[in-house]
Design a protein around this nucleic acid. Structure first.
Lengths: 335, 335
DNA sequence: CTGTTAGCGCATTCAC
DNA sequence: GTGAATGCGCTAACAG
């Protein structure tokens, strides 16, 4: 930058003004500087600017695992939304464990970023205190464990109720619940609640032997939970898995055992990952409005960042629930 | 840091030494400093350190799209490998387009990172010059377009030949090739070449009407290409898709049209994404050794970074081909 | 082994 | 409108 200034015969300040699109620079001056910048191939040093500005332009996105399709798609949406407002996203994987989720709040790497988009799944209500951080943070995808923290929630409970009602409407009564093990986990808890609400509203009892799951919501978990339930020897005619990959794992397991979907057992999931429309059979699921969630959350965080240079505002927290939509597909079709 | 130094009654340098685990510090001194750090809750400012050091500790990983399972799993592996050597990964999405892939090499954001792990898929040989960059870079997943650039290649050609031979061994002769459209694209070109090599070695001709595809290797592409081929009215008994998601899309399309896999048509893919073992039927594919690739590439890049503080070495480029393994599953079973 | 000094490259007070 | 100082927080010579 010094070289540019010298070569253009102006001061450092002028170059800085030009680069930062400061309005009051004479056009001829600006052109001259820009030409020199081009000649020299000058590129600004972000690190220096960051040090001076006290911020980095980076925001962290903490998700359980990128290889879980839902979070890959969420990350994609967040990156796109952040690009729009000039922010860069640094992805952190928590492994979906409580320890991993707590660590991301305090790790030194956290300090490389100006703010955090946080999607905890394993945190318990006892951990709510940990969310009382001194940097801008927006919670994603579930209702806040703690008041006073911005969050963009998805319609977990309403979505689960809707999809359960869809199963009930199809005449299914013996509906298994997969993933409902960890009743403390936010999204799981809410989705399970929606399920139970729909069941009890329909006057159908939930058989505890039809419930299985694990903390990690993976394909394997779905398959294993399905196997567990089947081996208990109970009858069932439908499965609601708390997310799509578990539903797909469960379908796989049903297939292994010679059961047909939706003939013998209807299967529904939650998330509407891309794969859900291409699986065999295609999967009925709830689309939680990922894009809207990402855009809203990034906007919220950007506002906080702009508001007080990274300082935490004490103003009231935003609580936004995204819209959802049921995607009815083959896996729950009735003959 | 100044506060810590003052409170501990030592100089800045000593605190710095302690924080950086400089070996020659008296234990009692270190303990004292550490205690004060703890008391004050001091956390280092990375930006300042980076400015001083002239590096950021960040490396970029440029992939087409995170939502493509292969790249999500690759990113996961890279992040894990980078963590091991104290590096943080910044993910860039190129969209799988030539423009996007070129931009990642020159964008200002590039300068936030010390080096680049680069996985181009749309670059053509005419773009090889663009790879002559002045920062450490390691190419991932395909043979370098340009000599003198480090790269960790997967066994594209050998893997494709192996899986094609597997189809031929199963008695299949009318084998469709999906994804082979863009013959310039590195990995696609090589995989297609392996396919053709196996075919010609077996004395089987490749029917051009059995070839379809698109630049973007998505599930939709696979389904669409499969539809195209089927609508040409040609007979076929197998499909080799150049990656798993296209294979899954193709299977979906076959199913839509009442064709059975592997009964009527055997299907094989490439990548061994997690989904391949859970699809219905499970998918025969090539495991290209993602973890090994990630670890090797990160190691290579870390070496370059350490070697000359981010300067590009003129030493001979490394060229490493990872090992591969065929995963034989239901989609290519013979009765 | 530890303290002192001088930048890293930029943004930002202020005068001009 | 533009130029000249000062500091962001840390590390890397040095000297002691």
């Amino acid at each position: 930058m010094r070289d540019v200034a010298r070569r253009a015969g102006v001061s450092l300040k002028t170059v800085s003004n030009v680069v930062n699109a400061y309005p009051h620079v004479r056009p001829e001056m600006r052109d001259r500087v820009l030409r020199v910048i081009d000649e020299l191939g000058y590129q600004m040093n972000f690190t220096a600017r960051n040090l001076s500005l006290g911020r980095t332009g980076l925001i962290a996105l903490a998700v359980p695992e990128l290889r879980l399709a839902y979070f890959a798609e969420l990350a994609d949406a967040v990156i796109a939304a952040a690009d729009q407002v000039g922010l860069t996203v640094l992805i952190e994987q928590t492994g979906g464990t409580r320890a991993g989720e707590l660590e991301v709040l305090t790790s030194p790497r956290r300090r490389m970023t100006d703010g955090l988009l946080y999607s905890p799944t394993a945190l318990r209500s006892a951990d709510a205190g940990a969310l009382d951080v001194d940097f801008p943070m927006v919670l994603l995808g579930e209702r806040a464990l703690r008041r006073g923290v911005d969050h963009v929630a998805m319609a977990n409970e309403a979505g689960a109720r809707t999809v359960t009602e869809h199963l009930l409407d199809g005449g299914r009564r013996r509906i298994a619940l997969i993933g409902g093990h960890d009743s403390e986990s936010g999204a799981g808890n809410l989705r399970a609640r929606g399920f139970r609400a729909a069941m009890s509203a329909a006057g159908v009892e939930v058989d505890p032997r039809l419930v299985a799951g694990d903390e990690r919501w993976s394909r394997q978990t779905g398959a294993r939970a399905m196997a567990e339930i089947l081996e208990r020897g109970v009858t069932l005619d439908a499965v609601f898995a708390l997310n799509d990959v578990m539903a797909l794992g469960a379908m796989r397991e049903l297939f292994e055992r010679g059961l047909s979907v939706p003939g013998d057992v209807a299967v529904a999931g939650f998330d509407n990952i891309e794969e859900a429309s291409f699986s065999r059979p295609s999967l009925t699921t709830i689309d939680p409005g990922r894009t809207e969630i990402a855009r809203t959350a990034v906007g919220l965080l950007a506002d906080r960042l702009a508001g007080r240079g990274g300082e935490h505002e004490t103003a009231s927290a935003h609580e936004i629930v995204a819209g959802f939509r049921i995607e009815t597909r083959e896996s729950t079709a009735t003959d």
